[in-house]
């Protein structure tokens, strides 16, 4: 377990989301000598998004490891290192490159604790920059998070703000479970206030367990009374902008930032929908068999008599991620979210 503690007086800084993750990684490397980073180009280059900038220089090549270009090898050797007592944090360079590691993640990493009846623990974090909207070439804009949420044994989380990114990456590293840490790369450059006084470290305290459990919780990012938008990652900012626009039309929208996809903090979302009576789910991943389907089913089961309208979903289409000149027609932007809001309000 881990202990959250106020350490020193670092205070609050305004950081980009990528810098916040960098700061969280740095804090984990400083705090726990067993933490090490592994990935492609994460050393002197600092990663293609510079998320590990400066860490190789300060912690050396044995703790910030430039690996061969083989994703299965990265995760497979991370499993071995974890069996030896290390806490590897793997960077998968882009969402679309995770599939060579899919077998190691789903078949080995996710199941080791279960197969060993709790004797073996694999505290491995897999960081995945995900999502689109940055004008990238193919395989660089995908949202595969549900494939991992569908796999028991993994935790799947995604921060939407720099403040959450800083704390959640530390919680993920401190967790005894394998954590898929999806980073909304389209928001890497978004800035926000980050409280640098939070340190999450490994430890066996009650406070530590509570600090870890916090990673699973959804947050109400904006309160409202007419409709709830459930979103995560890059979708949260879109939802907040849609809520702003809807407010001008007199519709009060509550935005729930799910933060964790597995587990799903159903109670927080259900409480919100019971208050508002309407729910729209937003994600970049394809709607078909997506997280929205699971969320809609749960909300319907638990809010049936409170619902004024069916739960609606806004997301990607059942196509491969398209060429970037048309990606904004594929992605759920503010207008498509508002269209769903209008449809829900019309019931």
């Amino acid at each position: 377990m881990s202990a959250a503690e106020a350490s020193g007086h670092r205070g609050t800084q305004r950081l980009t989301l990528s810098k916040a993750i960098n700061a969280g990684l740095r804090r984990a490397l400083e705090t726990d000598p067993k933490v090490l980073l592994m990935g492609e180009d994460i050393g002197p280059l600092g990663g293609v998004f510079r998320v590990t900038d400066g860490l190789h220089k300060d912690f050396g090549p044995d703790r910030v490891v430039d690996t061969p270009l083989a994703e299965s090898g990265i995760v497979g050797t991370a499993i071995g290192l974890a069996l030896r007592g290390y806490r590897p944090v793997c960077e998968i360079q882009f969402d679309g490159f995770i599939f060579p590691a899919f077998d190691q993640i789903t078949t080995q990493l996710a199941k080791m604790r279960y197969r060993s009846r709790g004797r073996l623990s694999l505290p491995v974090v897999i960081r995945v920059p995900y999502g689109g909207g940055i004008g990238a070439i193919e395989h660089h804009s995908e949202s595969p998070e549900v494939l991992f949420a569908h796999t028991a044994g993994l935790r799947v989380v995604t921060p939407a703000t720099p403040a959450d990114a800083f704390v959640m990456i530390q919680q993920a590293i401190a967790s005894p479970d394998p954590v898929m840490f999806f980073e909304p790369k389209g928001r890497y450059w978004d800035k926000g206030e980050v409280d640098l006084d939070t340190t999450i470290t490994s430890g066996d305290t009650q406070a530590g367990a509570a600090a870890l459990a916090e990673m699973d919780r959804a947050h109400v990012a904006r309160t409202g009374t007419d409709l709830t938008i459930a979103a995560y990652g890059a979708g949260v900012a879109t939802a907040l902008r849609a809520a702003e626009a809807a407010a001008a039309d007199g519709v009060s929208i509550e935005v729930v930032d799910l933060r964790s996809i597995s587990p799903l903090d159903a109670p927080t979302l259900v409480a919100s929908v019971r208050r508002t009576g309407r729910c729209v789910v937003v994600h970049e991943a394809p709607v078909f068999y997506g997280a929205g389907g699971e969320i809609a089913a749960r909300v319907t089961e638990e809010c049936f008599y409170h619902l004024q309208a069916p739960v609606l979903r806004v997301g990607g289409f059942h196509t491969p991620y398209p060429a970037n000149k048309v990606e904004h027609d594929y992605l759920p932007g503010v207008d498509r979210v508002l269209d769903a809001v209008d449809r829900a309000m019309a019931f």
Binding site: R113, G118, G153, S175, P176, D177, L212, P263, D265
Partner: peptide, 11 residues
Amino acid sequence: DHVYGTPHSTL
């Protein structure tokens, strides 16, 4: 048992 090392509300 032993799917996770810390509580997982869905499970």
